[in-house]
Design a protein around this nucleic acid. Structure first.
Lengths: 144, 144
DNA sequence: CAGTATCCAGCTGGATACTG
DNA sequence: CAGTATCCAGCTGGATACTG
């Protein structure tokens, strides 16, 4: 079972062994992840994955709490990355629709694992935070 | 093929239909995701998932490019969330070891889907960016 | 070794006003 | 309607110096 040429205690528990030691690939993946993991991108993906196709104002309402500036910036970035398509209808008043590409939908699916994880562990995380907080306060108690 | 009671064009493509409309849960999940998706947390998780157990300096080297301040902040946060355990050995010079908890490892697995996605799509994303960039430059060309 | 403390430049992103 | 333009407060995070 153990491989003689590979120390068992250092076996990759990170589920994708292939790229773990490749610094170039890691830098690229890091940049992509950093980009998709920003505050609004995932929420835009979720909104569009749920509703299919939305206009700018509808998208803003679906995301919730996003400023015009940030929504514009986010969707432009996502368009450049090929995660969504932006369709401008030459009418007055303007009408612009946003829809996920296939790649955008596949990202929604890939991110589903993290979403489920967060859902499943949130109570444990919150309990852990409270315990940590309580302990930290207990330690500083001797000097009131 | 099409379901008569459910408009096909609005069918939920987001793979977890259960929580999609729950604003409370969404706020919590959003906060958790925002936390784990910061610049260093995922890299710390990757480093520890790969190597098992590391001292502070080893961890800094494995993550790469992180300042002492940010690494301290990140691991403290992760400790509070229950993603890793921090073991201090009362020796001189100090020795502190970091190791993922089971929850931390499960997060590494959950995030694997996103990692693979990024790996698989990076060439498409880069091509898309170049195309977008080229088009944007072509449009502003008439006024040099 | 594994931090803490301090300073500060630069980015982020909200608010507001304006426009084709 | 779907943006753009501008201003600016606040947070982020790097650099540096210091310490039990």
């Amino acid at each position: 079972m153990t491989h003689p040429l590979q120390p068992a205690s250092r076996a990759p528990q990170w589920p994708h062994g292939a790229n773990a030691n490749d610094p170039e690939l890691e830098a690229l993946v890091r940049e992509i992840i950093g980009r998709i993991a920003d505050k609004w991108t995932m929420l835009v993906i979720e909104a569009l994955a749920e509703r299919g196709c939305l206009r700018f104002t509808q998208l803003a309402a679906a995301v919730g709490g996003v400023s015009q500036k940030m929504l514009t910036k986010t969707v432009r970035q996502m368009e450049a990355d090929g995660l969504l398509v932006r369709t401008v209808y030459p009418v007055v008043p303007p009408r612009v629709e946003y829809r996920l590409t296939e790649m955008g939908m596949s990202l929604a699916e890939a991110f589903c694992g993290v979403w489920l994880w967060a859902e499943q562990h949130r109570h444990v995380i919150e309990a852990s935070r409270r315990a940590y907080q309580a302990q930290a306060e207990g330690e500083g108690e001797s000097t009131p």
